[in-house]
């Protein structure tokens, strides 16, 4: 009987960008993020409440229905993706939404063996040069 060894591939230096925007804007945000280099995004619906009473006629101008967009990016890409999504979502306009970025301890997903081998080979080459 053979005992299979399972290993975990962990990614580090990753950031999470979260955008809370009006319903319907998530597609625009996601498209901009992908154009800026993000690999993907996850979106879910939410209901928001804030200073909407101050905006529009009796607050009805701002939709309380929100979309929350999660985008995980590498630390290298983080600023570029953040800026692209900020501009695409027109978050400099009052009432359009908010976004923030947090540093993640680590992330994990399925990484094909071929990709791991390529990374190992690249690392090996780098070590040999040094």
């Amino acid at each position: 009987m053979s005992k299979e060894t399972r290993s975990i591939t962990v990614l580090t230096d990753v950031h999470l960008i979260t955008c809370v925007v009006q319903r319907g804007l998530a597609d625009t945000i996601t498209r901009a993020a992908k154009r800026a280099g993000a690999q993907g995004a996850t979106v879910f619906f939410a209901r928001g409440m804030g200073i909407k009473e101050r905006l529009g006629l009796l607050g009805v101008a701002i939709d309380a229905e929100k979309e929350v967009v999660h985008i995980v990016v590498s630390a290298e890409q983080a600023d570029r993706v953040f800026e692209a999504t900020y501009l695409a979502g027109k978050l400099d306009t009052p009432g359009m939404g908010i976004m923030y970025m947090t540093r993640l301890d680590k992330a994990a997903t399925f990484v094909p063996q071929q990709v791991i081998d390529n990374l190992d080979a690249a690392q090996q080459a780098q070590d040999n040069e040094a």
Binding site: R6, S7, I8, T102, L104, D105, K106, A107, A108, T109
Partner: peptide
């Protein structure tokens, strides 16, 4: 717990999702 979730979801075997941890 991170490792248990990873193995339960079999992320080492197929693209079943994405997970991360923050402080």
């Amino acid at each position: 717990i991170f490792e248990k979730i990873y193995l339960f979801q079999e992320l080492d075997r197929r693209p079943n999702g994405f997970m991360f941890q923050e402080d």
